[in-house]
Design a protein around this nucleic acid. Structure first.
Lengths: 347, 347
DNA sequence: AGAGCGGTCTAAACCGGTTTAGAGTCAGAG
DNA sequence: CTCTGACTCTAAACCGGTTTAGACCGCTCT
């Protein structure tokens, strides 16, 4: 049985001073003579003393932890490259700051609100990330009501007291559409994310606007839940249409990869007979054949910036909104010239 | 400015009793009259009181949280389906138990040990998961030294005081090899994980043994770091050999998918000219073309069982080792008969 | 010499729960 | 009628830190 962990009282006793002075010395606060400080630090070192976060948390009323709630059915969480990268970015910021990340994975939106409540009510975290914003997102109101600092990924629609860290994804969609239009495509479809999610509907609108600007009708849009299986269904439906598309812009990579599979299985040559673009730049999309043209967003730095902003909020600053460099379209192999001749402009 | 959160003292005052009795009533302990208990519960409800986990943590000397440290360079963490599913499984167990998951993502093994130390020294967690076991894994000794309950995913080589929750992955590899041999393949290669990782070398050994049992030489084995980019390189090397393989068994899905891309890019028809199997059953592998034959392991239940075992360890029980149902091989479209005729047995 | 002051340090309160020792009340047994 | 024991409850200690009020010291200034 190893010895009990030393407490600050043990250090005080060994150094021959009071508890309070030990606390002062270890936190580098003034009012401790250099000589005594050294003696205290020495004693702490000898005992291998480490402050108990629990005691600190209680007395300074901080949890030294941030909360992240991920709402995804288990099916989609697999394969989606966003969260792992985002979390890696968050960690990069938290670890040096002595903070920890408390993660909650829940299946649906009711459980999501309950999870936020639980994290905050138990005082487990000092602040929360709000990701995957939805229309009229109840979490904003909840966080305000719980009086907890928060940061939103993207600008919510409803007025929000919390700083937002955003990455423009419209530019990427527009670039993808422009790229396809430049290759002569006219019948371009979009496999969109769920309309209730802000980035789902925003990407869809960006698609529609880009099409309109190019003088094309944005008639072929299928709404999905971002799952690979949805990509399969949507692609099948689109390809079965009499006015089947020559190019499909997918709202994420897993659906694009699944769509590619559907097209290939149907005997279509990609990209010669069908061009495909993804979104979010998964590692695997880079290595499949043909390599996926996609819109890459830097989820890692999104994570670290969001974490930094949240920490500043907690520290009492009022950080403003941050706009990250926009996601950018990276053409690879899955897009090429339209199989059908571009009608001449004067026709 | 919302009102300060009520404490147990507020509840006590409102109910006209002492703090201690409130604590007893709320924890359902005997020694409180039914009438008083109701009055206390009513007061707590009226005030919307929620116990502070911080205070509880300090007084009962528990963190009510479990630690998971993930060591992966950001490149591989993306695309790997294991951790998201595993975490979902863990959550399923923790949430009802009022526990939280503290997640740490670190880039390398030094940072990994430091992360465990930090979680435990700060008393942030009551127990830790040890995943991705390696040979002579320093974390076992560290956890013992830190005197923290732990659970290992798989049986470590070195004697370990901690319960292990294992899933046999050899059977899956063997089934894959047998499947390929049955299809007439003789030149079967293996793209292995890193030898320093237990599951990397164990899958490799299972491959070699299955080959030997089938009377074949297991000469073509390439060691990798589990990254998709490694799968690309390994596949190129294998296909460039004069005695190129007719089938490749990959140690994980991302490498298999990348390898498929390499083969297709080289003009090989998969599976007609090259059969491919993966490992771990990613969602995306199911939807690509050809759909990936792979070994699926139930990472979700792995997570919940491991969490349950760890919670029991923390509660002072001595749970034994658990063996989950073995990962099983699921043939899909990426494997078929060998393109070369099977030599007759008597030749 | 005494007041004033900065520097150093101690004692004790505090954070919000849990837990223990013991006080008070009441019923039933002797 | 008193003793015993069960039941209910209070007061206070405790977890391990932080923070505040104030004591004590030696010094300078008038």
């Amino acid at each position: 049985m190893p010895a009990e962990r030393p407490t600050i009282a043990d250090v005080a006793q060994r150094a021959g001073v009071s508890k309070g002075l030990v606390s002062f010395a270890l936190n580098g606060r003034p009012g401790v003579s250099a000589q005594t400080r050294d003696r205290i630090l020495e004693a702490a070192r000898e005992l291998g003393w480490q402050p108990s976060l629990r005691a600190r948390a209680l007395s300074v009323n901080r949890a030294f932890a941030l909360g992240l709630v991920i709402t995804r059915d288990p099916e989609i969480v697999t394969g989606d490259p966003f969260y792992p990268s985002f979390i890696a970015g968050v960690e990069r910021e938290l670890a040096p700051a002595g903070q920890a990340l408390v993660l909650s994975v829940v299946p649906d939106e009711d459980a999501e609100l309950a999870a936020y409540r639980k994290l905050v009510a138990g005082r487990r975290v000092d602040g929360v990330f709000i990701t995957d914003l939805r229309h009229d997102d109840a979490r904003i109101e909840l966080a305000r009501e719980l009086n907890v600092p928060a940061v939103t990924l993207g600008h919510p629609e409803t007025p929000s007291p919390f700083p937002a860290v955003s990455m423009d994804d419209r530019a990427g969609i527009e670039a993808a559409v422009d790229h396809l239009v430049g290759l002569g495509h006219r019948r371009i479809a979009h496999v969109a994310g769920p309309a209730r999610m802000l980035h789902g509907s925003r990407r869809r609108r960006a698609f529609e606007e880009a099409m309109t600007r190019a003088g094309l009708r944005a008639g072929m849009v299928v709404e999905t839940d971002f799952r690979a299986a949805d990509g399969v269904r949507a692609t099948r439906d689109l390809l079965a249409r009499p006015d089947y598309p020559t190019a499909i812009v997918y709202a994420n990579d897993p659906m694009a990869i699944a769509g590619l599979g559907v097209a290939q299985r149907a005997g279509l040559r990609v990209p010669d007979e069908l061009s495909i673009t993804g979104f979010d730049g998964s590692d695997v999309g880079e290595h499949i054949f043909p390599a996926l043209s996609t819109v890459v967003s830097d989820a890692v730095s999104w994570g670290s910036v969001a974490a930094r902003v949240l920490l500043r909020s907690i520290a009492g600053e009022q950080p403003g909104d941050t706009d990250l460099p926009p996601a950018r379209f990276v053409p690879r192999e899955s897009t090429t010239r339209s199989p059908e001749p571009t009608p001449r402009a004067d026709v």
